[in-house]
Write a protein that binds this DNA or RNA. Structure first.
Length: 482
DNA sequence: TTTTGAGTTGTTCGA
DNA sequence: GTCGAACAACTCAAA
């Protein structure tokens, strides 16, 4: 009897463009697909609550897709290294195949696993698949990793990106099927209270939904993406982020799909170009994290370690709950809480508000996003928070402080985004909705709004907060380096 | 080695 | 109302 190959699924919950799975099938040997619920990652970066919700359904889908092709997904819990060594012995596997991970702990974990498997004669093979290109092979002419996006982008578009692979038609079962735990027993879904109703309404996890989302976006989002992506009141973004975060669709599939769609939109390439650039930002963040593993915890620019934050549990709580008194900020935070996702433009606004208006450490915002986002991705999350804080690679300059009123008026001009997520302001006219505390008394009364009662008064005065932030950032200048 | 040009997403102020 | 400059230097990447 031929020895099986174990395919270790991680953040690559798909069958298409899965090099490890395709290679395993190509050996002609039986295949044992396994997912290990691994809490070996540092406690701070364990899967958050929204991530666990998504994972449940994504695994359910993956199991079904494998079964349709003759395979059977095995679920196990524990330290992945130990679990995989045991499973390999149990089913007398010849090898373990997986997609390489780039989180700070992933490399060491894979090497350790390789050594442990080798001790019992089992080979570990790692395949690329999480990114467009190998982070160790995209360097400046001087041989160092890029720290600035534009040259990174120029270099990325010059390299050849591997074409996506097809789904293997059949997944051959081993003669003796290894035991699997039951997904329900993992208790990934919330109960008492079941807060996931908004997530269920907003999302369909899984590979086939991911592919449908991509097709729908190419059809009616891509052409106008460059302008519409900034409008939280419209469906102008791709909404692919959670699917990408779980690897239900690969970034290479997205890349090539957008490129070929671009050829069909000859009048303008701004939309496709902007989308490719966004994929490149994801890539840039992943490469940064690969080369600077402390990115999620420590400021990339060391002088920011001396920043005079003013940690304040009440301010943080008001921000988390969407009770800051700034409608565009509160709308974003409530959209996040309800659906596990927030529009990209609004992410920048709420992050700028937490960091620069409330002077809360960016790590607190990062941790909240990590727990609440269905698309939580260590690299994107860390790099983006540091970008807003000004402490990151190629970051926003410190004097760039978003004005939450102006941002609301520009990107949610008729207030429909705010009305949707902050219903207590829904009856206000557009002219008043982004700064209700400035509205005339009769306008507020007619809309049934009482500032400080039915909706909070602004937690800070933006003008004053802006000045305080500018001087806080200016104070860094003198206190450099030591 | 030294030099040079450039650097995602903003806001405010004054002419 | 519109427009350009200032906001702050500094580091990066390439020539």
């Amino acid at each position: 009897m031929e020895k099986p190959i174990i395919v270790w699924f991680r953040r690559d919950l798909r069958l298409a463009d899965h090099a490890a799975l395709s290679a395993a099938v190509a050996t002609g040997q039986p295949v044992v697909p396994v997912f290990v619920l691994d809490d070996a990652s540092p406690a701070r970066w364990r899967a958050g609550a929204a991530t666990r919700w998504w994972l449940h359904f994504s695994l359910e889908q993956l199991g079904r897709s494998l079964a349709e092709r003759g395979g059977a997904l095995v679920l196990r819990r524990g330290d992945a290294r130990q679990v995989l060594v045991e499973l390999a012995a149990e089913c007398e596997a010849a090898g373990v195949y997986c997609t390489r991970g780039y989180e700070p702990w992933a490399g060491d974990l894979e090497i350790d696993l390789r050594d442990r498997l080798a001790a019992s004669g089992v080979v570990l093979k790692r395949f690329a698949g999480a990114l467009l290109h190998d982070p160790d092979r995209l360097k400046t002419q001087a041989g160092s990793p890029f720290k600035v996006f534009t040259p990174f982008w120029n270099a990325l578009r010059r390299v050849e990106i591997a074409r996506p692979l097809d789904v293997p038609p059949r997944i051959p079962l081993p003669a003796k099927k290894p035991k699997s735990e039951r997904l329900q027993d993992w208790k990934l879904l919330p109960r008492r209270p079941d807060w996931a109703g908004g997530l269920r309404d907003a999302w369909t996890p899984g590979e086939s939904a991911a592919r449908e989302r991509l097709v729908a976006f190419l059809d009616d989002g891509l052409a106008d993406y460059a302008t519409q992506r900034n409008r939280p009141d419209r469906a102008g973004t791709s909404r692919l982020s959670p699917h990408l975060a779980f690897g239900e669709i690969s970034v290479r599939q997205c890349w090539f799909a957008a490129k070929s769609a671009a050829g069909r939109v000859p009048h303008s390439d701004a939309g496709p170009e902007t989308f490719l650039k966004e994929l490149a930002w994801r890539e840039f963040s992943a490469h940064l994290l690969h080369h600077w593993p402390t990115l999620p915890d420590d400021p990339f620019r060391k002088e920011f370690a001396a920043f005079p934050w003013r940690p304040d549990a009440k301010a943080l709580k008001a921000w988390q709950r969407g009770m800051t008194g700034y409608p565009i900020v509160d709308a974003g935070m409530r959209e996040l809480w309800a659906t596990g996702w927030m529009h990209n433009r609004v992410r920048m606004i709420v992050a700028s508000f937490l960091i620069k208006d409330l002077l809360q450490p960016w790590q607190d915002g990062e941790a909240w996003f990590w727990d609440t986002l269905v698309d939580a991705d260590l690299a994107n999350n860390a790099a983006s928070w540091q970008w807003v804080a000004g402490s990151g690679a190629d970051a926003a300059p410190y004097f760039r402080i978003f004005n939450p009123i102006k941002q609301g008026e520009t990107f949610d001009p008729d207030g429909s985004y705010v009305r949707r997520w902050v219903p207590e302001l829904a009856a206000l006219p557009a002219a008043a909705i982004h700064a209700p505390w400035l509205a005339r008394g009769d306008v507020l009364a007619a809309a049934g709004v009482e500032i400080g009662v039915s909706y909070p008064a602004p937690i800070v005065d933006h003008g004053e907060a802006r000045q305080a932030a500018l001087s806080a950032f200016a104070s860094l200048k003198g206190s450099s380096a030591d």
